[in-house]
Design a protein around this nucleic acid. Sequence first.
DNA 1: AATGAATGAGAGTTCATTCAT
DNA 2: TATGAATGAACTCTCATTCAT
Lengths: 215, 215, 215, 215
Amino acid sequence: MSEPVLEPTTDRGRATRQALLDAAEEVFGLVGYNDASIGEITRRADVAQGTFYVYFPDKRAAFSEVVRQVNRKVRHASTLGTEGAVTRMDAEKGGFRAFFDYIEAHPSIYRIVRDAEFVAPEAAGAHYEAWARPYAAALREAQESGEFADGIDPDLLAHLLMGLSEFFGQRLPRWESLGREESIDQLLLFVERALTADDPRSHTVKRVMNQGDNK
Amino acid sequence: MSEPVLEPTTDRGRATRQALLDAAEEVFGLVGYNDASIGEITRRADVAQGTFYVYFPDKRAAFSEVVRQVNRKVRHASTLGTEGAVTRMDAEKGGFRAFFDYIEAHPSIYRIVRDAEFVAPEAAGAHYEAWARPYAAALREAQESGEFADGIDPDLLAHLLMGLSEFFGQRLPRWESLGREESIDQLLLFVERALTADDPRSHTVKRVMNQGDNK
Amino acid sequence: MSEPVLEPTTDRGRATRQALLDAAEEVFGLVGYNDASIGEITRRADVAQGTFYVYFPDKRAAFSEVVRQVNRKVRHASTLGTEGAVTRMDAEKGGFRAFFDYIEAHPSIYRIVRDAEFVAPEAAGAHYEAWARPYAAALREAQESGEFADGIDPDLLAHLLMGLSEFFGQRLPRWESLGREESIDQLLLFVERALTADDPRSHTVKRVMNQGDNK
Amino acid sequence: MSEPVLEPTTDRGRATRQALLDAAEEVFGLVGYNDASIGEITRRADVAQGTFYVYFPDKRAAFSEVVRQVNRKVRHASTLGTEGAVTRMDAEKGGFRAFFDYIEAHPSIYRIVRDAEFVAPEAAGAHYEAWARPYAAALREAQESGEFADGIDPDLLAHLLMGLSEFFGQRLPRWESLGREESIDQLLLFVERALTADDPRSHTVKRVMNQGDNK
DNA sequence: AATGAATGAGAGTTCATTCAT
DNA sequence: TATGAATGAACTCTCATTCAT
């Protein structure tokens, strides 16, 4: 006697469902999973409270889907930032910046991503894994080509970089004294050093040293 | 007329209060702030439900204090790990390792730290700031002594390192395939590269270089 | 203006209606009136939820009709069991047995019959009355012919026997230790004694006595 | 993290609990399990809705306890009716009559007993079994002493008699045309015949016969 | 005749908090 | 200082029913 909660068949149904999903994203982002109430969601979606349960079996299921939706968007935005890059390091920088731009424009998704870890771990996990796979592959390539230093498992590396970007992205405002751009630059410098095991700010100097050494 | 939620004056009072705090830490850690109920806390502390409000004005206040208690412990454990280190880099490594050991032995504090950001941001913030201040000072010193590369604001650096350790510490089990020790080693390698802008895996060569340089 | 909840005019309509009725019988029997949901009924009948209200004004009306349908079947089965009996007592036994067989093969109707008393008393009452009338007539005849002892109102008697059969039929499994056949035999012995005021297990003896008496 | 729902320790608590139980009996009896609402129960008990859950984990648990309470009362009343009886048959008659009196004075318990079978089968079952055990023992004794005919398992017999009394008790009003007393008398006649396999209305005659037989 | 979307009242339940003792 | 009882607002979820197509 299980409930069905089917995919909608009509356009009207699909529209309502999406309206609910969007409203849910808003509310979850604003007040977090626990304080989000179905009532507030349906109010914003302009439907009756019961309608929620036409499309989602319960609050968690809706949240889980919101998480997937949000992650899809984030990933998309980040990926856009990597396009056109020549070196892998440039791709990294572009990806990081695009991610920061996106998260700054949609600050509430942070809350969703955080809650996801406990409320919808399956969705959260899937997101990280889905992201990590191609990311790690790209990193491995860069290691093999010599652009990046090796000695660190690419999968681990991918997670470290995701963690850094998330952590930093969520705290960007903290460094307003340093300035948004400057703090991003410094973060990227940190990342570059870690990846290349080399100080880009003293390239010329080192090169000279190295040349001397090589003799 | 309003009860001021007394600091306990008697020994018995202090004991009860601490029992509540410990029980609260358990419960908050187990199920998170929202799903933690006062009833469960008092049950574990073996006191009546009303007693809770003798010591805390409300749930949030107790949580806030738990957060402080937890952070104090974490900081303490980490700091112990840095003792006896000669170089700053060794101190970093010791601190990281001690932190991982502690978090692995007390996995539930993770949940508390996470929730703190939204539920008791003042306590969470205070923790990071309190930690960051001496940390940043130590990093600045290492930069000035030339042990660490400069170009990155020490305060920002301190936060990046705290972020990394937290992120990684919470996911240690993910890399069981790599092995706990190996994955920690790789993380530390990542950190070392980022801090020294230098690949420690080629130290001998460099040291030679440096020696020649020093003359 | 109000839709009259039409008797279906087309074959297709009749089929849908019957499908709904059968599905309803299933669901009502399985979980009882209250826990039965229109949604589950229409799902099993493989029609849209709205279709239900094309044929029934509301849940109760459908239930009421299910009750009638069920009772009709039960009565039919019982009556079949009485056919071909020579004495009234044999008819009783046959009817009882047929009833037990039927209820054992369709255990869920029990639930429907029970609920009917509160949810659709008119249908339940009609059933008992419809059954009682001919039943009482047959009993009266048996009393008048001397086959059954008199002194008990035939209508009351009919109800007692219906009550007994229902009560016992619903609990048949309880006496598995005694064995299904043996427990039925004993029930029928109970009934026979009550009806004939005579112990069939000592017939020979009594007959002798009676013969002696008749002289 | 299971809920406690303790037995109350204070008098006040015990009183509240009993008030809830009594209110619940009223409401369950009036409208049945499903249509009974916690709100109505607490309103009648004159406590807040939340108080209900201080004493019962959920609606079913309260119902289950009501069932036990009701059954205890019924059994008590019936048993009182058997006291002072000399023969077993007199005890039967007294018990039946007392049961009818009680059920007539508290008609709503019928609804509770009926619902119990589906909602709280454990409580319902326990009731019948608890009642059947001593009942069956008494019947066996009467069979062994020769007062009652044997050939029917005493346990089965006990259930048949409980079933009869319940069925009949609940329908007493149906035979108002016959008159309450007369219909009870006829029921008891039915029972007596079934138990003694003998027609009490022709005792003198039979006795004579038997005497002749004994020679 | 049939559909699937939408409704909204109402249910049971939870729990932080207050209160009298 | 401590207790256990009591509170009541708020929440999620269900479901019979209506409606537009």
